[in-house]
Amino acid sequence: MKDTVMHPEPATVVDHQSKRMLELIGLRKSFGANQVLKGVDLSMNQGEVVSIIGASGSGKSTLLRCINWLETPDKGSTIMVDGRQVGHDDPARASRRDLARRRTEIGMVFQHFNLFPNMTAIENVMEAPLAHGRGTKPEIRALAEELLARVGLSERMTHHPSQLSGGQQQRVAIARALAMKPKLMLFDEVTSALDPELVDEVLKVMKGLAEDGMTMLFVTHEMAFAEDVSDRIIFMADGAILEEGPPSEVLRKPRHDRTRSFLSRAMRGM
């Protein structure tokens, strides 16, 4: 008995490290005749941090929004989170109830925060766990307090969103997404709507999450941040992945002309 306790199986640790958390296979999305995603394949391991960059209209936000089905992917697209399919190959057969359940595994943070303005910060964080019966109210309150403390907002728990700065609102939104203990976090240009002096406080929170081992997928214009936290950078153009690799390669030694010209514009002043 004692022996087993003393020697945790190394194999388990390795499995854990390389566990596939996200897999997109042939992801397509059209709005009418306009095909925005042209068959994207992408996979992420547990704990991996990936940033998607690219010009506006390249499909990066749509890609993110397809993962939790805020946009319904075209028929034949496959999205796997933690080894199980989200939705259905045939959108007509996806069940709303099943989607709602799977979405709790996928945290999402939006450009415009989208906090519920009629609730206080802590009520925003508590809402989803309460709705899904993730414990008693005191337990959920304790969890929400812990999460708000983690994003540095212990002093602002009973404030309404209108009483918070953009940076504070976005940190509440991150805490709200974390409250469901998601396996994967999606960040859709979360600092784009912020005043420049408020960007850092949000980036700091996200960096902390990355260091804690959260699997994170960013769509971002913050090149310095992407370089700093990402294990991998993906450059998208015209609804497809044009280039991907470690930040040191994609950002510093891009292979494609289009990546190069995008970066020369995006990294101006860096």
Binding site: L70, A100, R101, R103, F110, E127, A128, A131, A177
Partner: peptide, 14 residues
């Protein structure tokens, strides 16, 4: 706002 619907969807709110 539409964002409220999306936030609720993303949280899986019934």
């Amino acid at each position: 706002p539409r964002g409220q619907f999306e936030a609720a969807d993303a949280l899986g709110l019934p």
